[in-house]
Every structure is written in structure tokens, then in C-alpha cells.
Design a protein around this nucleic acid. Sequence first.
DNA 1: CTGTATCCCCTCCGATACTG
DNA 2: CAGTATCGGAGGGGATACAG
Lengths: 100, 100
Amino acid sequence: MCHDFHGTIEFIGKRWMGIIIYQLLNGPKRFSELTENIPGISDRLLTERLRELEKEGLIIKAMIPSQKKAHYELTPAGRELETVISSILNWIRIKQKLSN
Amino acid sequence: MCHDFHGTIEFIGKRWMGIIIYQLLNGPKRFSELTENIPGISDRLLTERLRELEKEGLIIKAMIPSQKKAHYELTPAGRELETVISSILNWIRIKQKLSN
DNA sequence: CTGTATCCCCTCCGATACTG
DNA sequence: CAGTATCGGAGGGGATACAG
């Protein structure tokens, strides 16, 4: 359990990872949409993070063959991350209150 | 907000950070107790992480002058991280169920 | 016991260029 | 648009030694 915890928390703590997941929680997104909504991220890193998320089974890449458009969307396991993201967002709020 | 989120998630995703917080949620701990309970961590990194946690106001170092013993314990803000840690632990469980 | 100080490798990441 | 390939610098982190 300790090992999984360690792996998980470092995985979602990777650079840009949290924000990418956060974006995807608002619905499927295309590569270019992610680029636009995440200021500062490079193509290289976005690609790398997306592949890692795919590999972990947290997102899938869906192709629409008629048009040649790729979408990325969360799997059920990925969607369950909403709780984690929310708790972090909530903690940030709490912390700011406490520091007054 | 995006900036805070980014900073926070990367902060707690640093190597050993999650486990250190997890240990401290079970009550104040001494340096040596943390070393024993966290297999593989080095003195150097434990020190570094503790200093970062102090700087962020998430733990305090309490000295007992009579004996020369240091304790580390979570501040109120630090204790609020329990929700975040729990949600991650819970997500790991959910993910394992989903992968059956 | 509770750290600090170095050294140094090796990974992460940014920049840049290129492709179908 | 949606990536892939390559390079090079910065720094994170392991190993080791030392200290009050």
C-alpha cells in the first residue's frame, strides 16, 4: 500500500499533470485545446504526459475517423480523480483562510 | 488559482513528501521515528523535506530543551491535508476495483 | 540522535527543428 | 493540426562523510 501511495502521489504531482487532468474533467479535449488552456506547456511535455496518462489507463485517445480529429477523454478510473483534485482545491481555500 | 493549484500539487508530489505527511497525521514524530517508518529515505532528503514543510507552515519543530529531543508536528493547516491524503488512498482502492 | 556538507550522476524539462 | 526527434543545461536526489 505504501508503495502504491508513493507512486500515485508522485505521478499526479508531475509537472502539468494536475492541470491536464483538471482540464479533462470538464469534458474531452483536443490536443490544441489543451495547449491553449494550459499556458506555458510545450508540445513535447503535453505529449509525454498524455502518453503516461494513457499508459496508466486514466485517459483514452478517441479518434473520429470521418474527420481526422483526436480527442482525449478520461476513463472511469480517470474520472474518479475528481475527488482528489477537488480536495486539493478545497485545501488551498482552507489554507488561505487559516493564514488570516 | 491555477498557479496555486500547480504549486500545491507539485509540492505534495515531491519525493517522500506524501509519506512524511502521512506519518505525521498519526501524531508528532521524532526524526529517528520518521527514518524508521519510511524505508529508503535518506537523512539528507528527510531534512530537506522537513525544512520545506516548515517553510510552508505545515509543520512545526518542537524542541524539548530539558532533553535534547526534537518533535515534528502538523500545524492546523497541515492537519487539513488529511482530506487530501485520504482521497488519494481512496482513489487507489477505487482504481483497483475498477481494474477487475 | 539529529542533522550538515560535498560530490556527482542522471533524469526532467525547455528549446528548437522537423514531419504527415 | 498533432505530434516526433534531438540536444543541452539545471537541479533533484543518492552516497558518503562529518559534526554537535
